[in-house]
Structures are given as structure tokens and as C-alpha cells.
Simulated assay, not measured.
Amino acid sequence: MDHLRYSGLSFETQRTAFLDIVSADPLIDETLSRVRALGLPDWLVVSGALYNSVWNHLTGKPSGYGIKDVDLFYFDESDLSYEAEDSVIARAAPVFADLSLPVEIRNQARVHLWYPSKFGRSCPRYTSSSDSLGYFASQTHAVGVRFDMDGQLDLVAPFGLDDIFSFRITPNRLMDNQQTHETKGARAKENWPEISVVPW
């Protein structure tokens, strides 16, 4: 049960452990340094690459195990066109070209424009990259990091970190995302059998 050694501890203890783990992971460390150089507004590296790296560390698996890609959010309301987002993706492509995993970049200011056609239901108009985390299908996945003005790693975790350190995927019922919660939970359990998935 050593993989649960941070489960149930205070948020500050978990925060320190989380940031220590992700900053020491070579994939995350390299990604963060490159993202910083891009200078995107209100950026956050979010979700799977982070909590999967914590699970890998705590279960003795190698860096990058079970991770499909790195999700990078930014927030720019100045131009909500597809073309503007696409130009950011194109500008970032050579920056991340030789990373071991693809980097998926999305402007959170325009998610509400394409979400209904992709998922068949509406989503709110987000107010920031951090705001969008609160609507993830699973609370466990709602985590992001970025560098603050002083160059320190900053954490965004609207639901805390105990689910991550408890290897527990907990639903976020704010939106009708049951299928996403269940699909991601099942996939995670294949890679990390220690995980429990809380039913929707």
C-alpha cells in the first residue's frame, strides 16, 4: 500500500509532493520549459500527463507510461476564430516536435463554440483556463500547473489532490459527462490496477 502514502494527508503536504513529483519527471519538466518559451496567455499544462506521472512515480512505472499526450490549455478572447487557434498550434509544433509525446493545444476561450457539435450538448463559456478545469468529467482529472511570475511552479486543483493520491477517480456531475468519466476510468484501470472508479 506504499503507493497510498500521501492519501488523506493535508492539502499542503499533497501539494508539495505533487509539485515535487511532476517537476522531477523528465517529460513534464521538458514540456513546461518549452511551454514557457511560447509565451501563451493564461496557459496551463493539465490533466493526464500530470496525474498519470504521479501514479507512475508512486507505482514504480517509467516516465511517460500510459500517457497518450500532453494537454496544453491557453485562454485568449481576442480572436475566437478557428484560424487563430490553428496558427498557435502551428507556431507551437516545431517547439514540441521532438518531444516523446504529442502536445494537444486548445484555446479555452472558444470551447463553447465547438463543444455542442462534438458532444451533442452545450457547455458554458469559460472565463479562464483554470475555470475550465471545474467542468471536467472527473474531479480527479481537474489539475493543472504553470509557472508563476517568479518562475515557481503554480498548481491549479479546484477539487484538491486527495483523489489523485488515493488512486480514486471521482465523477464531477456538473455536466452530463458520464460516458467520458466511465471510459477514462476504465482505461486508467487497465494501466494502473490500483485505481478505483467511483460510479457516476
Rank of each mutant, 00 (worst) to 15 (best):
P199W: 03
D42Y: 00
R36V: 01
Q108S: 11
Y65D: 11
A49T: 07
E190D: 11
A90M: 09
T31F: 08
A92Q: 04
R36F: 03
D69A: 13
S63T: 14
V197D: 05
G144D: 05
I195Y: 05
I195M: 12
E190Q: 14
E194C: 07
N107Q: 07
V197C: 04
H57L: 04
E85G: 15
L113K: 06
S87I: 08
H57S: 14
D86L: 12
D176L: 06
G144Y: 01
V198D: 06
N107I: 12
V111P: 15
G160I: 12
A109G: 06
Q178D: 11
E104P: 00
G64S: 02
W200R: 06
G120R: 06
D154G: 07
D150S: 11
N52E: 11
V143Y: 00
S33L: 12
T183V: 15
Y65L: 09
K118G: 01
Y115H: 12
F73R: 08
I89Y: 11
V103F: 09
S130N: 09
R91L: 12
D154H: 10
L58F: 02
S23A: 05
W43I: 02
V156P: 00
Q139P: 00
S63K: 03
S129T: 14
S53C: 02
S100Q: 14
R168M: 09
V156C: 05
D176A: 10
G48V: 09
T13R: 11
E12S: 13
L38F: 01
